[in-house]
Amino acid sequence: MDTEDIEKLNGFLDKDVEIREKIKEQVNELDKKARTMVGILNRVHSTQSEALPPLLDSVRPVLLSCHDTISQLASIVPGNQFWRWKDMWTNSLRTAVFSAVMVEYLTKRDLVSLQGVSDTLGFKAEWADRVALPAEDYLHGVISLVNDLSRLAVNSVTLGDFEEPVKISIFVKDLFAGFSMLNLKNDVLRRRFDSLKYDIKKIEEVVYDVSLRKLTTSSKESKGTAGGDIEK
């Protein structure tokens, strides 16, 4: 190798090392924020529905604070190299996505779109070749939501809220129908999708338990009429 070439390669490699270190710093930040949010959201399982709004309000500022980290990342990653570096933050990002979809679900009972999450976390379209929210990461976040909702179905009953499991059940079934439309190859997303059926089964069991014992309003109302919902 001639010296000129050696110097050139060294230049490239030194730059990569520098970029990696800077990204790592930001990823640590993002990771901290993601953990904070998951920590707060974990309390959902022990919070009465009336007390939920303030809890969710305490997550929102953390979600918004991801803007800084994302824009820092956008300034560090060189153009067209998004896919080169994204693995470094994928895990933290998926957790952040989970937090965003969870907050939205508990607020509006709806699935926030990819674009919605992307806006919440502060991604900008012009950064698409440096930082972006790919469908795969979004879908991972949504699957985490289903995983957590199956717990919530159980825990809400424990807290005396018998309607929650029914709502969750309808929502999750539609999500499952959505996931079934995708042609997934044999990867992590596919494996996690395959495991969704256990979450659905768990939720259905809860719904079954509460309806059988006529604990939900709909089944209470039909108490007088012969049979009720269950026989249908």
């Binding site: 709806d110 929502f171 439309m181």
Partner: peptide, 12 residues
């Protein structure tokens, strides 16, 4: 039901 099934499926 708050969410719109057809919108959700369109996303997917």
């Amino acid at each position: 039901i708050q969410h719109d099934r057809s919108v959700l499926l369109a996303h997917f």
